[in-house]
């Protein structure tokens, strides 16, 4: 009963602090910008919502373009941090002392709802999401399960093409195969990123265990966050420097290039049909222009070197024949003089 009473009081305290948080946020934004933060259900409001509101106000004020990209990156990075702040504050309000519970709480904090869906198509963001999300746990098993279906599609693509549109059909088959290969390599890559994520949390627990000594305890959310980042980078580096990662990374890049090449071929075909210049033709012209440019520059340099050598030889001849050095005379005069004199052997000959 006393325990229940204590828990109720903790919850009430927590709701009170959350409310204070939102009031302070509303006050701060009002003072800074004259805007107002949404005041609905502060107890339920995720803390990163403050960041979203800030983002909306920032957009409304039309940020300078040069800075808006940085603001986007700030938003992406800080969202996780605010989710972590809330999760950690929540955890500490429950008086939980178990490192594993902290780790799980941290894991959940990075898996917060409302993450920007547009980031899903960004490879790094996807990697980041899987680095930190507990949803990646069964990823390897899931991919294993999909293999039979992928094999079936691949077998269909191996069927022989025939008839009038045979070449076109083969090109489409090659493109579809390249796409499937790319999907497969992406999955292998993501599997390794998931492994890095798992390793990061193991290392995080190790790092936490080291902080059990007096004077080394983590006493701030930022401190905890920084510790997690160290663990995440260590875990990632372990995987990224492995021979397996090197092979998978290379295969992924190569697979993506094969997809791009297949698409380029398709575009070339369409361009040809429409009588438009193709990438291959432009490359070919570009290469020829470059070779001409290089040859002409080399020739110009050779000419300059020859001119310098001729001038030096002329000067030497003038000295040997007792006339003034060529540098001191106008060029025309020297040529006229040379033309009227009989040829003399130079020491260079």
């Amino acid at each position: 009963m006393a325990k229940d009473h204590g828990a109720t009081r903790t919850l009430e305290d927590w709701q009170k602090t959350s409310r204070q948080y939102w009031e302070a946020w509303s006050d701060a934004t009002r003072k800074a910008f004259g805007g107002t933060a949404d005041a609905t259900s502060p107890d339920q409001m995720p803390w990163h919502e403050g960041l979203e509101q800030w983002s909306r106000m920032f957009d409304a004020g039309k940020a300078q373009n040069a800075q808006s990209e940085t603001v986007e990156r700030l938003l992406a990075g800080a969202r996780s941090y605010f989710a972590l702040l809330q999760s950690m504050a929540d955890q500490s309000s429950q008086g939980n002392a178990d490192p594993q519970a902290w780790t799980e709480s941290l894991r959940n904090a990075f898996n917060f709802p409302g993450a920007d869906a547009a980031l899903v198509d960004n490879p790094l963001a996807r990697a980041m999401r899987e680095l930190s999300g507990s949803g990646a746990k069964g990823f390897e098993q899931m991919m294993e399960g999909l293999q039979p279906a992928l094999r079936e599609v691949r077998a269909m693509l191996d069927l022989p093409a025939f008839g009038y549109a045979r070449e076109h059909q083969e090109q489409h088959q090659r493109m579809a195969k390249a796409w499937l290969d790319y999907q497969q390599e992406t999955n292998r890559y993501n599997t390794l990123i998931a492994r890095a994520s798992k390793r990061a949390f193991e290392l995080f627990e190790d790092k936490l265990a080291e902080r059990g000594e007096p004077g080394r305890q983590v006493d701030s959310v930022r401190g905890l966050y920084d510790l997690w980042v160290d663990a995440a980078e260590d875990g990632y580096a372990e995987v990224a420097l492995s021979d397996e990662f090197r092979e998978v990374y290379g295969a992924l890049v190569n697979a993506q290039m094969r997809v791009r090449q297949a698409m380029q071929k398709e575009v070339e075909k369409i361009s040809n049909d429409l009588g438009m210049p193709t990438r291959t033709e432009i490359d070919s012209i570009g290469k020829r222009v470059h070779e001409l440019h290089r040859a002409s520059r080399n020739r110009a340099e050779d000419d300059a070197a020859l001119r310098a050598e001729i001038a030096a030889l002329r000067a030497e001849v003038e000295q040997l024949t007792g006339t003034r050095p060529i540098a001191a005379q106008p060029q025309g005069a020297s040529i006229r003089k040379r033309a009227t004199k009989p040829a003399t052997k130079s020491s260079k000959e």
């Binding site: 948080y21 701060a28 941090y81 504050a89 500490s92 490192p99 936490l208 006493d219």
Partner: peptide, 23 residues
């Protein structure tokens, strides 16, 4: 000894400071 000792009030302060910076 517990490796983490984060006072909820301190966590709240951190969040408020961050929000004040945003503002």
């Amino acid at each position: 000894m517990d490796p983490i000792r984060i006072d909820p009030k301190r966590a709240l302060d951190e969040a408020l400071r961050a929000q004040q910076k945003l503002a």
